[in-house]
Write a protein that binds this DNA or RNA. Structure first.
Length: 580
RNA sequence: GCCCACGUAGCUCAGUGGUAGAGCGCUUCCUUGGUAAGGAAGAGGUCAUCGGUUCAAUCCCGAUCGUGGGCUCCA
């Protein structure tokens, strides 16, 4: 990351690159209309309206034309113009999108930028001339709705990136390659973690033994941590009567994401969220203020009908399991509960080596509940964020339909951001289900409900972990922790004995006793990211030792099995967070 | 859902309007070899599915399903 000034220059450079691309496209494809073309965090894009279509094959052609424009070193010329004049100007050129944009500009005067024959409505700034844009590359073509609204016409977007130097561009492209290498979909197949199948259906994951082990370890970790923090475990059904979803508001507000079925003339819905069963637990008896907070936890599997175009490996699926909990508390406890959750999140993220940032989302247009409720919940979330010293962004109108929320975006080893944890206040469901507790004053009061997940969807979290660790899970999460390698057939019995001993100690050990050369077995174990390899041959058999090789550090020499166990056992088990 | 691509052996990918190929993997045999690939032989594909054009389609066209890159949406 450069300085603030450096970032500014970078975005100016990229914005200028976008103009150069637009010029090239207009020259190569007559009839193209310009929409918008900003810089982004990773580069730039320009949206075009064109009767034909662009494909990836057009990119080299456009790039070549761009290089010519760069070689001409055309100055970027800023001009001020009366708005009326600009309107006429763009109208004459048939640039209807620019006209639409102009009509919304309140000022009387606007600026345009020219390079050569190309003119664009633009606030600027730009670099001095096209010659300054040297290191750039076009990356992809995509569809994009005009103004990001799917009711509008779909435009054609071309993405590219630009940097001050070729070296920086190359570093960026290398990083894209690196991301491809650690793509969880690729590693998931190579490491036998999971698979998806056309015959099964899109967005539905099948966990293979290794992936299932990672998941099981995470689940076990979750159970222990939740138990430590005063959560109670509950389990709810997968289908619940549609009538219940009507009462909760999901039927009205979330219907398009739900699957329905009919049983004996009754309409049922496959749960897209776990909250209703938890509410039923709360309602099963009279609650006292002394019972609160009631923290109900469930590794809850939910089904959501996601639109086909959004599915992506493990990161966006149609069936997933959340580490979900609902906390029912008194309004005066809200603050401490939110704090407890944020502490939990913070400790968990540290364990996995993620940094993260918080986002506070406020009331959306489509929502239920009173203004007063929304205000109170938003305030509580904001207060805790500030007391805990979290830096956070506010996303106006991005909250759930039932309440405001804090989303935690974690950042992986490549600096990419993922949403996992979320904390959502809810004043609506307690109202709709008429939840109450008897206060110290002997009268009924309304509890507050918090929906929260720590790792979020396990599918997504495992996907992020795979990419974060490049498939090389830390010892405690490695599906196979140790592999015992025999050198020749006569070492097999000893190898089996070593393997058994390890398994008895709770170490996940497997043997590779095939008739293959040691180098071959090591290569395979390395590629499969097994943390430790134990080689057994004549020398080890003789001395009753094992030759230890670490995935990261290579050959560690021979030692007794006891010495090896002493070294690794402390790191083999499921870790425990510090807690509050 | 929308825009653009793609779908060939278990995997990664070549290829052609005249019924298909490589590497890895798999099987068998030889080899018993000390820290990232020992050798040989063999098996394996209705070229995603359905329809159309054509004397002839894996290849051209259309639809469907699935996947990828985006948009919108989201854990």
């Amino acid at each position: 990351m450069g300085s603030a000034k450096g970032d500014e220059y970078l975005s100016t450079l990229r914005h200028s690159a976008a103009h150069i691309m637009a010029q090239a496209v207009k020259e190569l494809f007559p009839g193209v209309k310009l929409a918008i073309g900003p810089s982004t965090e990773e580069g730039f894009y320009y949206d075009f309206d064109y009767e034909g279509t662009f494909s990836e094959e057009d990119l080299p052609k456009i790039e070549a034309r761009m290089r010519e424009i760069v070689a001409q070193d055309l100055p970027f010329i800023r001009e001020e113009m009366a708005k009326e004049e600009a309107l006429r100007f763009f109208q004459e050129r048939g640039e209807s999108y620019k006209v639409e944009l102009l009509e919304e500009i309140p000022d009387d005067r606007v600026t345009i930028y020219r390079q050569g024959d190309f003119v664009d409505l633009c606030r600027g700034p730009h670099v001095a001339s096209t010659g300054e844009v040297k290191a750039f590359k076009l990356l992809s073509v995509a569809g994009a709705y005009w103004r990001g609204d799917e009711r509008n016409r779909m435009l054609q977007r071309i993405y590219g990136t630009a940097f001050p130097t070729e070296e920086e561009l190359k570093a960026f492209l290398d990083r894209l390659e690196e991301a491809k290498r650690r793509d969880h979909r690729r590693l998931g197949k190579e490491l036998e973690l999971f698979s998806t199948h056309e015959e099964v259906g899109p967005g539905l994951v099948i966990w293979h033994h290794r992936g299932a082990m990672v998941r099981w370890l995470l689940e076990e970790f979750e159970r222990r941590e939740h138990l430590k923090r005063g959560y109670q475990f509950v389990v709810g059904p997968h289908i619940l009567k549609a009538e219940l979803w009507r009462r909760s508001g999901h039927y009205d507000y979330y219907r398009e994401h739900m699957y329905f079925t009919e049983v004996e003339g009754q309409e049922y819905a496959l749960k897209p969220m776990n909250c209703l069963a938890h509410i039923m637990v709360y309602r099963s008896r009279q609650r006292s203020y002394r019972d609160l907070p009631l923290r109900l936890f469930e590794l809850g599997t939910v089904h959501r009908h996601e639109r086909s175009g959004v599915l992506h490996g493990l990161l966006r699926v149609r069936e997933f399991t959340q580490d979900d909990a609902h906390i029912f508390c008194r309004p005066d406890q809200l603050h401490d509960e939110i704090r407890g959750i944020l502490d939990f999140v913070q400790e968990a993220m540290e364990l996995f080596g993620f940094s993260f940032e918080a986002e506070l989302s406020t009331r959306p247009e489509k929502s239920i509940g009173t203004d007063e409720d929304w205000e109170r919940a938003t305030k509580a979330l904001r207060e805790v964020l500030e007391e805990e010293g979290f830096s956070y962004e506010v996303n106006e109108g991005e909250g759930a339909f039932y309440g405001p929320k804090i989303d935690i975006k974690l950042e992986d080893a490549l600096g990419r951001k993922w949403q996992c944890a979320t904390i959502q206040c809810d004043f609506s469901l307690p109202e709709r289900f008429d939840l109450s507790y008897i206060g110290a004053d002997g009268s009924k009061h309304r509890p507050v409900m918090i929906h929260r997940v720590i790792l979020g969807a396990l599918e997504r979290f495992v996907g992020v972990l795979i990419e974060h660790y490049k498939g090389a899970f830390p010892l405690w999460l490695a599906p196979e922790q140790v592999r015992v390698l025999s050198i020749t057939d006569r070492h097999i019995p000893y190898g089996e004995e070593v393997c058994r001993r390890l398994q008895q100690e709770g170490v996940r050990a497997e043997g590779d006793f095939r008739n293959e050369k040691l180098g071959y077995k090591i290569r395979q174990a390395q590629l499969e990211k097994v943390p430790y390899m134990l080689v057994v041959g004549d020398r080890e058999l003789e001395e009753q030792k094992v030759a230890v090789r670490s995935r990261e550090e290579g050959d560690l020499g021979a030692m007794t099995l006891e010495a090896f166990l002493e070294m690794v056992l402390p790191h083999c088990g499921i870790p425990s967070l510090g807690g509050r």
